[in-house]
Simulated assay, not measured.
Amino acid sequence: MDRTRFFVRVSAIYALIGAFMGSHMAGGGGYQLSAIHAHILVVGWLSLFAFAIFYKMFSIPKTSKLASFHVWSSFIGVFGLTVGMWLYYTQPFGGLGVFNTLFFIVGGTILLFAFISFAILVFVQGKHISEA
């Protein structure tokens, strides 16, 4: 899998969702979903795009299990956090409060593990990170 292409494409989808959401909020004058909008843009667009740049700039081996864990936990975590936030704050399906809360917490926790794995990856694969 081309990690750079994957992250750029997924981040582009989050950028579109975030832009449409912001446009809708601005046009409607309601800012109730601004926290969700911000998380979609920050963790969905900016973080995933930054990860794409990282994998493009530095020759992290494609066989790295830690890198694979980072990629998939980032993808699943961003989805889980943002969808979980939406479910938690909007409660679109009445009576699923516990499910919505758990979806939010599990998504955020997976994303936290993704960021932890990235920090570890930077040090474990440090020999591949240089200016030259």
Rank of each mutant, 00 (worst) to 15 (best):
H24D: 11
A35I: 11
W86G: 06
F118N: 01
T63P: 08
A38E: 04
K62A: 14
L41H: 11
W45K: 07
Q91F: 09
D2I: 01
Y14E: 03
I110K: 02
V106I: 13
V98H: 07
Q91A: 14
K62Q: 14
M21R: 03
F103Y: 09
I110Y: 02
F7I: 02
S117W: 05
L33M: 06
M25Y: 00
Y55L: 00
R9Y: 15
V71F: 13
I116E: 04
Y89S: 07
G29Q: 06
S11R: 06
T109D: 01
D2K: 12
A50Y: 05
Y88I: 07
L96R: 12
A12H: 02
H70Q: 04
Q125L: 06
G22L: 01
I53W: 09
I60P: 02
P92H: 04
M85R: 05
T90N: 07
M57L: 14
F113R: 09
L33W: 06
L87R: 01
Y14F: 08
F118E: 03
T4V: 13
L96A: 10
F93V: 12
A50P: 02
I129R: 05
K65H: 15
D2T: 08
F115H: 13
K62R: 15
T101A: 10
T82P: 02
F115S: 15
V83G: 02
G94C: 10
E131C: 14
Y55C: 03
F118W: 07
K56T: 10
F51L: 15
A50H: 09
S68H: 13
L96P: 00
L16M: 12
I53F: 13
G22W: 03
D2H: 06
F75C: 03
Q32F: 13
